[in-house]
């Protein structure tokens, strides 16, 4: 069983390294690409855990939708990232110090890590062997977690409404296309026929 362990460490190390590069990369496009790499590695870790459905969802949603959207935004908006990062070095020492302190403390935590034997009792029972991952999720999503599922739906609804509220505005001085108006334009509205008498002008 050496292969899964090798895979675990590989995924983990690459995930952490690429997560670091997301922050450290100078080019924002590189940052997004590193982010995608991080997602992939996280998906790999999920697969190792036997959660293949989550792994696929992660790839499809985060890599396929979110990260690509990020990429679009980064490329389409002409943001001067050099300017944005000016304060970065200035606050670097403080950030590093906080990070180190928290890291040391978390190492302490790991040092005292004791998995109580009874903890497994409280952990949810693993899905039966004959049920697929997706099936198992489906079974509890509408029963055990129906409340959360519906609530999450509301959260998404609010997010959608919010996005529309904040972006959909009627602005003055912007030309908009109206297909209805275009197709219903009649010749009379657009053209006025004038008889031009010779020697008089229009």
């Amino acid at each position: 069983m050496i292969i899964p362990e090798i895979a675990f460490y590989l995924f983990s190390v690459v995930a952490i390294a690429s997560a670091f590069m997301v922050v450290a990369a100078r080019n924002p496009v590189h940052s997004v690409l590193f982010l995608i790499l991080t997602f992939f590695n996280a998906a790999g870790l999920f697969v190792l855990l036997g959660a293949e459905f989550l792994a696929m969802i992660l790839v499809i949603v985060y890599v396929g939708a979110v990260a690509v959207l990020f990429l679009f935004v980064v490329m389409m908006l002409d943001i001067n990232f050099v300017e944005l990062r000016q304060g970065f070095l200035q606050y670097m020492p403080v950030g590093v110090a906080i990070g180190i302190v928290l890291l040391i403390e978390l190492v302490f935590v790991l040092g005292t890590w004791v998995i109580v034997p009874e903890a497994k009792v409280f952990a949810e029972a693993p899905p039966p062997a004959n049920v697929t991952n997706t099936h198992a999720l489906g079974q509890i999503l509408y029963t055990e977690y129906v409340y959360l599922f519906q609530a999450a739906g509301l959260v998404l609804l609010v997010a959608m409404v919010g996005a529309i509220v904040l972006t959909l505005r009627t602005r003055e001085g912007v030309r908009r296309q109206s297909a209805f108006a275009q197709t219903h334009r009649r010749r009379e509205d657009a053209i006025e026929i004038k008889k031009v008498l010779p020697g008089q002008g229009a």
Binding site: G87, Y91, G95, L102, F108
Partner: peptide, 29 residues
Amino acid sequence: GYLYHYAFAMLIGVAVLVTWLFTRTGGGA
């Protein structure tokens, strides 16, 4: 008024609280 100051303040706050608890409980369990 700077966003990253605020964010730093929060993180420093967390770090201080954790450290505070560490010192109070002697670092161990």
